[in-house]
Amino acid sequence: MTVYGTRPEAIKVAPVIRALETSPHLESVTVVTGQHREMLDQVNEIFGIIPDHDLEVFAHGQGLNVLMSKVFERLDPVLEQERPDALIVQGDTSTVAAASIAAFYRQIPVVHLEAGLRSGDIHSPFPEEANRKLTSQVSALHLAPTPTSKQNLLREAIDESTVVVTGNTVIDALLHTVDQGLPISDPRLAGPVKEGASILLVTSHRRENWGGAMEGVGRALRRLAEHFPDVLIVLPAHRNPIVREAVLPHVRGLSNVVVTEPLAYGEFTRVMAASTVVLTDSGGVQEEAPSLGKPVLVMRENTERPEAVDAGTVRLIGTDEQRIVDEVGRLLTDKDAYAQMANAVNPYGDGRAAARSIAALEHLLVDGARLPDFEG
């Protein structure tokens, strides 16, 4: 059984679900919590996934405790009905933490996809750092995306025999989606993408950046738009009103800023592939954009994905307004600085993470043979 609730989870579990469906030894049951709604459904459609169960936990403005309690309450009867031999979760959302503990309480082995990411700060990202550490404590199989993630788990006294380095399934999903060449429906984006315009793609939503930091992001975007009138700033706005109220007033009325609703995953990958620079506080984008040769500036003070920082394709810049302006401006004007980041090697995967994950799952459940670890 695979349980997931948000768009990032859906993107990363989709290759595994597709591979499960072709396994002669395993049967796939999918459960969505609906922690995200429309965005989750879009990804399922792209990958042709029809969930077997939908817990429908989404509600506007609900707190984390309410969300977690809904997952516990609505997932448990499904576990009782299906009685799975194992439960797969991905990443570090509230869906992941709640589903993992619910399965553990029923003595169902938990398989943690993208295990071992650590920032070292329990409050950043919040609540993700705590969610993934909690999940590690109850997991029977840890599918770590990189050797660094494996070492994080070993430092926490996780049994090495339960850890498999798979690469990140986000690369599997990205390669599959880019190959489809899905159309861009918004003409404000389709034209510039087709014409090869200079594009700054921006995503910002992190809870720890809410408030003054996100206001600074909005001001920085306005300054960049005014200083670089030939650069199109594309801002798919997160639906949370706290995010929108902090950022959007600062960019309103600027002709070279396009604010959209959250883009469908296929469209987002097309825009990302066409972008010049990516400015983000997202975790998944730090993995995806380097695979497309895009420099990534991360508006956070730390990251649980240090591999791309070490490789040089990602740079942590925080949320200081002036630094955002300076770092983006440097990449837009300094060809050498841009080339140095754009040509760095992406350490996150080779497109075979799902195959390694299924082999590890078959080894756990039916004594199948594991594949060699991804070496990064």
Rank of each mutant, 00 (worst) to 15 (best):
residue 224 L to K: 04
residue 227 H to N: 15
residue 85 D to N: 14
residue 178 V to W: 07
residue 231 V to W: 01
residue 340 Q to K: 14
residue 335 K to N: 13
residue 57 V to R: 00
residue 261 E to H: 10
residue 241 P to H: 08
residue 271 V to F: 07
residue 302 N to I: 14
residue 295 P to A: 05
residue 262 P to N: 06
residue 359 A to C: 09
residue 113 L to F: 11
residue 90 Q to I: 10
residue 330 R to N: 12
residue 181 G to Y: 06
residue 218 G to D: 10
residue 139 S to N: 10
residue 298 V to R: 00
residue 15 P to A: 07
residue 109 P to L: 04
residue 271 V to T: 10
residue 234 V to Y: 01
residue 288 E to M: 10
residue 121 D to V: 12
residue 314 V to R: 01
residue 50 I to Q: 15
residue 116 G to S: 04
residue 362 E to M: 04
residue 81 Q to E: 15
residue 291 S to G: 15
residue 175 L to R: 15
residue 368 G to W: 01
residue 83 R to A: 14
residue 82 E to S: 06
residue 112 H to R: 09
residue 1 M to C: 05
residue 80 E to T: 14
residue 201 L to W: 00
residue 47 F to C: 11
residue 155 R to W: 12
residue 66 V to S: 14
residue 290 P to A: 09
residue 120 G to F: 13
residue 85 D to K: 07
residue 195 E to A: 14
residue 32 V to P: 00
residue 230 D to W: 05
residue 235 L to M: 11
residue 56 E to P: 03
residue 183 P to G: 04
residue 357 S to C: 13
residue 75 L to Q: 00
residue 140 A to E: 15
residue 156 E to K: 06
residue 320 D to W: 03
residue 70 K to Y: 04
residue 40 L to E: 01
residue 247 V to F: 05
residue 274 A to Q: 01
residue 363 H to R: 12
residue 260 T to P: 10
residue 118 R to V: 02
residue 374 F to H: 07
residue 311 A to G: 06
residue 26 L to G: 05
residue 200 L to E: 04
residue 347 P to L: 03
residue 361 L to D: 05
residue 15 P to H: 11
residue 129 E to W: 05
residue 158 I to L: 07
residue 171 I to V: 14
residue 251 V to H: 03
residue 352 R to H: 15
residue 239 R to P: 13
residue 304 E to F: 04
residue 181 G to I: 10
residue 278 V to T: 01
residue 157 A to D: 15
residue 177 T to G: 07
residue 94 S to H: 09
residue 106 R to F: 08
residue 161 S to G: 15
residue 362 E to L: 03
residue 83 R to V: 12
residue 272 M to V: 11
residue 256 N to T: 08
